[in-house]
Design a protein around this nucleic acid. Structure first.
Lengths: 202, 202, 202, 202
DNA sequence: AATGAATGAGAGTTCATTCAT
DNA sequence: GATGAATGAACTCTCATTCAT
């Protein structure tokens, strides 16, 4: 039985950064598991082991928490893609590198990725969608490849959108499948990507 | 004397089906425009021209309304795909037909499609995602094509997931672009789809 | 001991107008007793014997409740003053009538009057103060009397402000004093008012 | 080598009185500008350049800050009135002096005065009103004047209340009017006051 | 069958106050 | 003495759902 007269709680005992991280992790976990709208700040706070008010030291409001996470994962993807692309080499090989890189990020940040694919409704505003920055980055890669003659000709926006969808589909499948193996999944995605978007030599 | 042909005023007892449709349309319109969570039953009822309580004659609760709509659009897509596939012909040609068919449905039911891609968060439960039935249908087509040697070899689930993502990406892009033209978009999607998934003859 | 399984509460059993009145009275009582800021909607609802949500059927928000009450008492005063003034007669006699009339209203609406003198802080916006409409009405009477030569010359705004303050002081004193007698208080106010504002004949 | 004359930077330990004053001034400014309820201790602390906790060295709680200010302005008024009254002279002349004195204080402490007339709601408890000490002082002057036969006969409490209201009305009007001129306002107030409360010689 | 007033749990957010540092 | 991170009760307001009419 719990003694209600316990001296409430220790104050200022933990590393502040660990609290920020605790809020982040708790929120991410809950959002991913139950959906953003079905999670209350009180639940996040409790799960993070802090008081409700403390959550607001780290995020201005609930939506800001979500946006911060979406930006985080978008950043991770965009940076990784850039990094892999900028290593140079033939464009088709860069595609391989990017597919591999994206899967690595996805595997390391499963929850964030799921959040990215789940919260369209909540965040939607002025036609902007989560994932747009990723798609935009893909577009610029594609444009470069197309003007170099290595990628299939077509409307860049549409090509980028399809490539984005293709990758997202593969990732979600990989994450959902219990038997999947990253190396194989990456290989398969790479193969399909190249079939779809790399121009045939004649 | 009672005139059986009362004028335009809504009757004491209207055709129940027309009410159901009114609720459906009002909800779809509002959900799409403002997001599921930002629409109240009161607003739906008002927009449908009926009382709040009456909404509950047609749907057990708010979430059921959303699920019904998602099922509806999934049905539309699945049925159309089946219909197009079952017309027979070479598998690659069937791909063409399906791409065309899906875009037709998408164009006729923009709001429903939008709902399908936006409400993952709300509906998500136990790993099931809106769109799964569509993906499942794609899987069965793909399996057939693969065993016939017309589709690229690979893990069926992954292939179906990628195809699904590819199509969804194309559709979203098409819907978002103000300058897009369906015929062109379909052509481009078809081409990419065949490059990606149709086995090369040698 | 209370049975928690009681069928919550009867619904729709009371006259709706009685609910509106109950909210009004409960809020007025509590605001007057404890101060607007120190009263919660929950307390108002409880005191009115209804649910919190029901309060919002009658008032858009908490501040609207207060404003409605202030308008109510301002209206009562303004109307009464006009009525008394418009009965005609010599201006000094009208002053008598108005003093009498105002006291009648004040006595019948003690709580509202107190609210009027208490909530300056809350309502203050753009320099507008509760009581301004009353003062404005006084101003127009004064202007009339001054141009007729019956009231003391001076800056009308200042004269009206002083008259207003004088009356308000008298009313508050009358309300606070347990031994006060309306007839006497009115007589005294009238006398002072006439000394202060009625021009001496020579 | 330690330089005892550190520059303008706030010292680890500042003069406590300057801190107290900083809190006082910050709070007064903010209360007057935004209303007591709309100002947080954190804002006061920040504006005063000290920590939240330090505020509590000077005031037990938020309400105590307000009460201290109300007492301050009451003191100012009461002391000034006493001072002017005690200069002696004919009672009517003392009235002139007091009117002048009160306006001087009001002009020098506009914010405090505003606070005095605006925060009734917050402070109100047990029938005690801010301003009561001022009114009480007026009462004692009036009693003296009345027993000397120089002031109009009547119930002292009522007379004092009316005088108080009259002055407050004049002050508020003077403060609100952009075109007002103190000398004129004082003159007008004095005239009306004497008409109202100074007994006519015969 | 239809209504919509009523409910009240629960949401996000604020902030006076405390106290370990 | 001073700090400001942390607390959590309390606030206003919303809205899915119910049910007497």
């Amino acid at each position: 039985m719990k003694n209600a007269d316990e001296p409430t709680q220790p104050r200022r005992t933990r590393d502040p950064d660990s609290k920020r991280a605790a809020v982040h992790d708790a929120a991410l976990h809950l959002f991913t598991k139950r959906g953003y709208e079905n999670v209350s700040i009180a639940q996040v706070a409790k799960s993070a082991g802090i008081a409700v008010g403390t959550v607001y030291r780290f995020y201005d409001n609930k939506l800001a928490m979500l946006r911060a996470m979406l930006e985080e994962i978008e950043d991770l993807f965009v940076r990784r893609m850039k990094h892999d692309w900028d290593k140079g080499g033939a464009h088709p090989d860069r595609l391989d590198a990017i597919c591999e890189g994206l899967f690595v990020v996805a595997e390391d940040h499963r929850s964030l990725l799921r959040l990215l694919t789940m919260t369209t409704d909540v965040v939607y505003v002025d036609g902007a969608l989560p994932g747009d920055r990723i798609q935009s980055q893909i577009r610029s890669f594609y444009a470069e490849g197309m003007s170099a003659g290595t990628f299939v000709e077509g409307d860049v926006d549409m090509m980028a959108a399809m490539a984005h969808g293709l990758v997202e589909g593969a990732m979600m499948q990989s994450m959902r499948s219990s038997t999947s193996n990253r190396t194989e999944d990456v290989a398969q995605l790479s193969k399909v990507m190249k079939n779809a978007f790399v121009a045939r030599q004649q």
